[in-house]
Amino acid sequence: MNIRRFILIAVPYAWLLALFFIPFFIVFKISLSDLALAIPPYSPTVKDGIFNMLSAFDFENFTFLASDDLYWKAYLSSLKIALISTIFAVIVGYPMAYGMARAPDEWRPTLMMLVILPFWTSFLIRVYAWVGILSNEGLLNQLLLWLGLIDAPLTIMNTTTAVYIGIVYTYLPFMILPIYAALDRLDESLIEAAEDLGCSRTKAFWLVTVPLSRNGIIAGCFLVFIPALGEFVIPSLLGGSGTLMIGKVLFEEFFNNRDWPVASAVAVVLLLILIVPITLFQRNQQRQAEADT
């Protein structure tokens, strides 16, 4: 092995080991340490505190998580919110992806750019934009009142509904792009063949187009579901105190309660939950890659 190749491999490897693997290991280890040994940050002995935590070993934090129903509820409600948002994202994203794939060729680069543009815009700002729309005296309520559709302002802000809207809105491009990619590859003569063989337009859509774009839908769902599960900004900003999501609980546990072992345990359990969809997602991607070759 020559020296250049060694450097090429060793530098990024060492970086990731030091700043990804070891920190992750620390979280794992601290999650198994005793609550009593946890020392709040900014104390002079904080460094020793970490080492103490690293050397201790018990499952107390996990039994604590299991016994306190705040955490159970937070995990379940995160799963529920992520799942429902994902379903809404399919409902909103599929027709858009379909419309893009059926659009005239000269429109497509522009449509594509319009989907990608929000990616480059600040996430925080895009979530913030909804605050002014959804609040009680916000633009949506003003519009509905003006139209005479409602008599009193609706309470959307600081409810789970606002969180759904926020997640669908911010992660919609993740849903559209894989579905569009799948639909774009779909040979139009297949639909013509289905119609030729006696399908109506709608039937051809359900029997040919949807099954053939299945991998795109699955990929899109995972790309929305996985980040939505650990989301912090959206529930904090739009969901108010009533919305329980695990990312928010972790953040608060750490910064407000300064309970590092419990925060670490929350993180470890969240990761364990995430492993399932991530593995499924990778399998789906692999299957698709194999189907392509």
Binding site: I26, V27, G230, S264, A267, L270
Partner: peptide, 13 residues
């Protein structure tokens, strides 16, 4: 795919 809260927490520790 790592949630940001976990990346942040682990690096801080």
């Amino acid at each position: 795919v790592m949630p940001e809260v976990i990346t942040g927490l682990s690096l801080l520790l």
